[in-house]
Nucleic acid binder design. Structure first.
Lengths: 137, 137
DNA sequence: AATAGACTTTGAGTTAACTCTAAGATTTGA
DNA sequence: TCAAATCTTAGAGTTAACTCAAAGTCTATT
């Protein structure tokens, strides 16, 4: 069965070896096994688990909270409810973030056309409302 | 013309007065005027500018880079090109983030149904592949 | 068998973005 | 008018998530 050294694993996951050791220190990857002399050996399943961790992290969950999830996983079926609720909550969070991002995109697009027009005119003045004494950026 | 004290402005923007002072220290809001004795008075236009700053910030741009944009604004029409390019770049960034978020959402949704099924069965074992010796979380 | 390179841990350093404290000045409301 | 609340600055403290350095051990290749 193929395994990966810490820097190979880091490479696969687009992380650094430092970051993986930090995750280990924080208790995110208790499942990663070691050789007799203490070197970490990452299995494919470990990389898959780390991909899930990265996914959860990208939703904005801090590492300390992700650790709770890992602890639940280690506790087994007794924590299925908590884990389910966590993902339901993450889903809501991501959906809200996407809504926010849509609004952000609209504003940014508006600014793109604002500056495109200004650039064509050679001056921002064409957008200036004489009633406003200050540029709106 | 209505103006706002720092804590009123903070309230309007869902920020803290500390954060606004920090923004000021970092040069993000050079346009905010002061009373003769030095108290900041925020105008409506200032709040609008801060909303744009928050919008740019939400795209992941660090405050030091946002300051460059503010500096360009102060320089006037000579920097229209840079500002245009910045927003075009921000647009691409947000679009990429939305794509990433879609993938994240799919994984999270998959986990939701994974745990829903497990919860109904009372055990995670129904998802276990006997070939895998480790849970995939 | 030797040596280069990768691994280990511990603990310190970094960075961003606030957040707060202290001490003092100003503003507001009874 | 006077106390309470709010404002000011300077600078220190906080937190998250790494990131690195040092000193030593292990592994892989000649």
């Amino acid at each position: 069965m193929k395994t990966y050294s810490i820097s190979e694993a880091a490479n696969e996951l687009n992380l650094t070896a430092y970051a993986l050791r930090y995750y280990d220190k924080e208790g995110l990857i208790p499942f990663v096994e070691r050789t007799a002399s203490g070197t970490r050996r990452f299995k494919e399943a470990d990389l898959d688990a780390l991909k899930i961790i990265e996914c959860i992290k990208s939703t904005g969950m801090p590492i300390k909270e992700i650790k709770h999830f890992i602890d639940w996983c280690l506790e087994g079926d007794a924590t299925l409810q908590q884990r389910y609720e966590m993902f339901v909550e993450r889903k809501a969070r991501v959906e809200a973030q996407m809504e926010e991002m849509k609004k952000t995109l609209e504003i940014i697009e508006h600014k793109c056309s604002y500056y495109k027009t200004a650039l064509e005119a050679g001056t921002e003045d064409i957008h200036k409302n004489p009633k406003l004494e200050f540029p709106q950026y």
